[in-house]
Design a protein around this nucleic acid. Structure first.
Lengths: 193, 193
DNA sequence: TAAGTGTCTAGACTCTGAGTCTGTACCCGT
DNA sequence: ACGGGTACAGACTCAGAGTCTAGACACTTA
């Protein structure tokens, strides 16, 4: 894959829309060409095919998630507060890039296909969240859990699937509502205190 | 779509494996024919195409989820206990049908594609869980939450994505571990009591 | 300015695979 | 033994993925 010029990269957002809406297989290269304004020959000049275009888009959002999560993690507030920030950060990115995120979730089940996705999610999300859980225990704002890895995954899933159900129905992603529900449920639990 | 004989239906599990592993688009009808032993002409005899084979498989697992969830919900134990049962029920089905579940998650992002999926998940899962949350409040085992719908979605997401990350790496699905992490996190919360 | 080099695109081509169609063998009730 | 539904084989069409060639433009470097 050659280095994709910024201007070309910018146009590819329209391709994400197609992927999300119709699925990868239903999306013709010519459709992508039409939607983005990038000629078919040029697409093949930069990418080996649809798959690679998809991977390119994914790398883009996952970088963004990593950045946002990183900012949330870096602050010096208590662990519990930063955890809430991380959740909001993820929701923000999903709200900004709805189409790519829909397509991304669609590919989550295919480890063999784009293997680096799993690694990227781990580095961008699971690892920082696990660290945060430990720090929260240290500063007293969170309690010790037996399996922080599973909690990080569960958290990611809760936010992702909730957000997704808004995205697929083309409702505007209500960050407050989802974020609020996930955060209070997660922090305070469902059992009466 | 004609009525699919039980024996034919049983063979389709192999197709789910292909879908999950390579994605729907990469899976050729002839591959399905080869993997299942069902001749291509016969596949077209029963189904209009790949999509319909996929939908058939989905309906199958979702029915199973609905059944299992229903059993969990019907007992007369406290809401909190039944909620934990529902989580284990979902994990059980995913452990039994790993390939279909992977493929299913892969299609979650495509509402337009198989629109009844969303409806089926709602009926099989969200609705019963929401009812359960209300009953738990009534019997005192759960606290009132502002948005039970969002909680139900978040719960589904937490379990689904956690389980998925085991499935894609071909690790045996550790029901105890995931179930335990999700249930205690969810019921007791992450904040120290 | 001319020649050389890399970027980008048009358009025609090949070839894979989805889905169709025809025919046929088999079973089952009458 | 005959008519009708079930199950399948094999050949066909056609859309669309990906390839190839050649040429247009921009940019160095001589």
């Amino acid at each position: 894959m050659r280095t994709v010029p910024t201007q070309t990269a910018a146009k590819l957002g329209a391709a994400a829309e197609l992927f999300a809406e119709n699925g990868v297989d239903q999306t013709k290269i010519e459709d992508i060409a039409a939607a983005t304004g990038i000629p078919k020959a040029t697409l093949y000049y930069y990418f080996t095919g649809k798959e690679e275009i998809l991977a390119f888009l994914f790398r883009d959002v996952l970088d963004r998630v990593a950045d946002e999560v990183d900012i949330a993690v870096q602050s010096d507030r208590p662990g519990a507060v930063r955890l809430a920030e991380v959740i909001r950060a993820q929701l923000r990115v999903m709200a900004e890039q709805p189409a790519v995120c829909r397509a991304l979730v669609g590919e989550l089940g295919r480890a063999g296909r784009i293997p680096e996705i799993a690694a990227m999610i781990h580095a961008a999300y699971y690892q920082p969240v696990q660290d945060l859980l430990a720090e929260g225990v240290a500063d007293g704002s969170l309690r010790q859990v037996p399996d922080p890895g599973s909690v990080a995954m569960a958290l990611f899933g809760a936010v992702t699937i909730s957000a997704l159900s808004y995205l697929v129905t083309d409702q505007p992603l209500d960050e407050e509502r989802i974020g609020g529900a996930v955060i209070t449920t997660l922090l305070d639990g469902l059992r009466p205190r």
